[in-house]
């Protein structure tokens, strides 16, 4: 007997009679937190992300020029905000080591925890949000959902092979519980929120 059959057989004889799935609405799960831009921004601040507000996406050009040292590598997947690294020419993700700032879009933001949803197709390389030293993530102001239930409603079927909720810069508290920003992933995350 294969291990698969052995395990499934053992489970079949051990599991109790089938219980039904709970009705989440009846339990009162979700929809009880406010999904406002103000709250979203406050949450981003709480989790250590930097927020930049602007009317137009193009306004980000100025911010990037003023805040990223010249000669540093910028990898961007936002056509309006071209970077210095030609992502289409990179086939090996290891070559992204040394990128100073990664610029990419998020589909929407989640008010309750400051996370933004990112799809693989918007990244070029899956490792981009971790390997870059800093992140510059653009999201539209009208794309904010209240909680994670609404968020999964928006995510729907993930068409690509990878997607993630990203909430602020990477961090650790593994040494004496002292919070340190910048573990293995980015040392800083700027969320650029544009539009009304």
């Amino acid at each position: 007997m294969s291990s698969r059959e052995a395990i499934l057989g053992a489970i079949r004889s051990a599991q109790p009679k089938a219980l039904s799935l709970p009705d989440l609405d009846a339990l009162g799960v979700g929809g009880r937190m406010e999904g406002t831009l103000v709250n979203f921004i406050a949450m981003l601040d709480f989790i250590g992300a930097r927020v930049v507000r602007a009317a137009k996406l193009e306004d980000a050009t100025t911010w990037l020029r003023e805040n990223i040292p010249v000669n540093e590598a910028i990898a961007s997947t936002v056509p309006q905000l071209p970077g210095t690294v030609d992502l289409s020419g990179i086939s090996d993700p290891h070559d992204l080591d040394g990128v100073h700032t990664a610029v990419f879009p998020a589909r929407f933001g989640v008010c309750e925890n400051g996370a933004v949803w990112i799809e693989e197709t918007d990244l070029g390389h899956r490792v981009l949000p971790m390997i870059a030293e800093h992140l510059f993530i653009v999201v539209r102001a009208d794309q904010i959902v209240a909680d994670m239930h609404a968020a999964y409603g928006r995510v729907g079927k993930i068409g690509s092979g990878f997607g993630l909720f990203l909430a602020g810069p990477s961090k650790t508290a593994d040494i004496e519980q002292c919070l340190v920003i910048g573990a293995h992933g980015a040392r800083g995350a700027t969320i650029f929120i544009w539009g009304e």
């Binding site: 994670m148 990878f162 909430a167 990477s170």
Partner: peptide, 23 residues
């Protein structure tokens, strides 16, 4: 996942979410 991700990080470290929740 909506249910479990809302509970996990808050219960674990008192953060509203882990930084990376990778699918």
């Amino acid at each position: 996942l909506g249910v479990f991700l809302r509970l996990l990080a808050r219960s674990a470290t008192g953060q509203p979410s882990t930084v990376f929740s990778s699918h």
